[in-house]
Design a protein around this nucleic acid. Structure first.
Lengths: 259, 259
DNA sequence: CTGTTGGATTTATATGATAAATATCTTTAC
DNA sequence: GTAAAGATATTTATCATATAAATCCAACAG
């Protein structure tokens, strides 16, 4: 029980004023609202813009600073840091980018990370997973089977499967990719669905990974996982062909923004 | 000129009160000072403890919250998040952990990430690096050669080499690992040096990587890089043998802590 | 041309007050 | 007695205002 895909806010983030401003400012920054001719506003102007107190704005700016998006100095003001210092591995930053400034190239680059990491994680899981972790992988696979019969959500169960393997690897850094992969998967699936009507990878391909891990076959698990993600990467790249002029947006899920 | 007993600075981070408190609190959190019987203090107590105003403490706490270390709610107070939600890919968090709570297992886990990522980056660099990026790799290799003759710092040039390849991969996520790898390398080198007096990997091994990339041999670059990092991983693991009782600290570089 | 001084601007820090959220205890209703 | 409803206390969240510190820039002196 207990696991609905909590879109819900984890403790700490929340529905309060500070966090909505962090969201809004964060999105504004990553979408380039404050670049070039439009410099980042001074404290006082932000207060007016959001109708909030200086404390709140300062705290919001500090949080974005902690994520590498902003910098500040007396007299010089607050500025947007160059993109290469944004902390892309921060789940918020990644989500803002994918949701609001979706670019296939970013999704591709992240999938390349997955292609490097997940096969290695599968191999490690095959060698080192304990009984509990193996059981979790099996459960996740069963959810995928259930999803095939319409008894569970295909996307959610797919995500759960990949995550169960990352956890089973026993490597904390791998496990940290959880939120990122969750975000990215939701978008890559959406993309590929739109583009070609392609469905999720077959349960059978996932079963190959799971089987190899459960019988301790590291090389097999690694190869099977690599196939899985290479397939995903291909689908994403196919999507890219449609919009031929570079790396631009394919779909940009718009949501009503608060006011 | 303006330096009191202050620590190190990068742009945006600074020598001001807020950032020293972030440092100090961040280190306290990752080293487990506020766990179990010793809960995280309430706002007012932190103010007394640091002799700073509530604004400052709140901003510091918010920054640590943004890095996944803390959470807060009215009436419930502020608490340390479970380790799995710490943002390990945040350079600050990683540095605090390695500098103040060094554990071989963490270093090993990070090196496993490198083992997954850097060979892939080398392969991509071989395929896609432009002339400027190739030149940067060559320069880095030359620095290593110079270092062999005592004309440059071996560690710094080693780091520069790995980073030049990550950048040349063209993948923004890879490039983001820069700071992390820099931190980790400084520590793994220190460790292996202490443990066995082992020296850095030979320039020749690095040259193999560089040569393969420059002539566009992706498979060769990948293999050579994998050898390089597997060697490093071995050295680190050997270090682990010395302290046989599990995964504990080998060396913990202690610095005078501020007060 | 060079170094210094002062003013202006912006963030950094301090303080004290009020509001909102919520865990815990208390009362009430049945 | 037990559970629902309400009161209370505690803690963060928010606001408002004041002062300090950093630093860019221009004016100025030598």
């Amino acid at each position: 029980m207990s696991n609905h895909p909590r879109n819900v806010i984890s403790p700490g983030r929340g529905q309060n004023l500070t966090y909505s401003i962090v969201q809004d400012l964060g999105i504004a920054v990553v979408t380039g609202k404050y670049s070039g001719k439009n410099p980042f506003p001074v404290e006082a102007d932000l207060c007016k813009q959001y109708g909030a107190s200086r404390s709140i704005l300062r705290e919001a700016v500090k949080m974005l600073t902690a994520k590498g998006l902003l910098g500040a100095r007396p007299r010089q003001g607050t500025w947007v840091q160059p993109e290469e210092s944004w902390n892309l591995f921060d789940p918020d930053v990644m989500r803002w980018l994918l949701e609001r400034k979706f670019s296939l190239s970013l999704l591709i680059e992240f999938t390349q990370i997955r292609l490097a990491v997940e096969p290695a994680a599968a191999a490690m899981a095959a060698m080192e997973a304990g009984p509990g972790e193996k059981a979790a992988i099996e459960r996740a696979l069963n959810r995928m089977i259930a999803a095939e019969h319409g008894e569970d959500d295909p996307l959610t169960s797919d995500i759960a499967f990949h995550i169960s393997i990352l956890r089973a690897s026993g490597n904390r850094f791998y496990a940290q990719l959880r939120e990122l992969i969750e975000t990215a998967l939701r978008f890559s699936i959406r993309t590929t669905n739109r583009v070609k009507g392609v469905r999720l990878a077959s349960v059978n391909d996932h079963k190959k990974v799971s089987d190899a891990i459960l019988k301790g076959d590291a090389a097999g698990a690694e190869a099977a996982m690599r196939d899985l993600i290479e397939e995903a990467l291909h689908l994403i790249r196919k999507g890219e062909g449609i919009d031929a002029k570079g790396e631009r947006v394919l779909l940009a899920p718009a949501r009503a923004s608060r006011r």
